[in-house]
Design a binder for these strands. Sequence first.
DNA 1: TGAACATTTGAGCAACTGTTCAATTGTTCA
DNA 2: TGAACAATTGAACAGTTGCTCAAATGTTCA
Lengths: 106, 106
Amino acid sequence: MPQPDNNTSSIKMLNEDVYPKLASLFKLFGDTTRLRILHALEQKELCVGDLAALLDITESAVSHQLKALKLSNLVKYRRDGQSVFYSLADDHVKILIDIALEHIME
Amino acid sequence: MPQPDNNTSSIKMLNEDVYPKLASLFKLFGDTTRLRILHALEQKELCVGDLAALLDITESAVSHQLKALKLSNLVKYRRDGQSVFYSLADDHVKILIDIALEHIME
DNA sequence: TGAACATTTGAGCAACTGTTCAATTGTTCA
DNA sequence: TGAACAATTGAACAGTTGCTCAAATGTTCA
C-alpha cells in the first residue's frame, strides 16, 4: 500500500541559486530613494544632477544608487557631454511598481 | 516669452508617503527565506512546521518571517488544532515573483 | 592647458535586519 | 489537570545597508 505522504512532498522549489538572485533584485526596490529614482526614470531620461535636484538628495547618493541599479540591469545610461543620462532598461520596473501599488491600495 | 523649462518640471512623483509603503512591501521580497516561504505557499497551504521542515530552518525563524508577511497582508492563516496553516492572501505575490523571474532570466 | 562643471568612487559610520536561543502561549487528548 | 506538540515572542548579536564627506575622474570650452 502507498505510504501516507507528508504534507510538503508535492512542493516544487526553484533551483536554490535562483532565490538569492530574486532577493537581490527585490532589495533594489526596497528602498525609498531607489524607488523614487526608478519612478522618475519611468517618465523621462534624466541625468544625475536632475535626479539630485528633483529628489533633493546629494549627487553622490544618487550616483551610488544608480550604480546598484545599473549592476542589476534595471537602468541603462548614455553619456552626453558632461552629463550621463539614465533611463529604465526595460518595462519590468514599471510593471513591478504598478503591481505593488495595486497591493498597497487594497 | 515662455521660460525655458528645466529638465524635470514635467515629472509627476507619487505622494511622498507612498514610497515608504512600496519600499516596505518590496523589502519583504528581498530576503531569500521569505521568498522561499512565499514560493512554497504559492503551491499549497502549509503550517509553520511544514515550512520549517521543507526549507530546513527553525520554526522560530519561519514564525518571525510569517509575522512580517502577515503584517503586510501577503499571507493569511487559519488555525486547525495545534497547527496554524498559512496561505497567500492574494495573487499579487505570484505575479511579482513571476515578473522578477522574467527579469533575471534575460 | 587650465578652470568649471558633472559624475564617480571609497572609507567610515549609524541604523536596520535576520537569525538564534530561551521562555511563553495555545491546543489536544488521555 | 498535566504531558506533549505547535507556534509565538523578545532580547541579543552579527552582518548588511545607505548615507556623508572628501578625493578622484571625465568632459567641455575658452
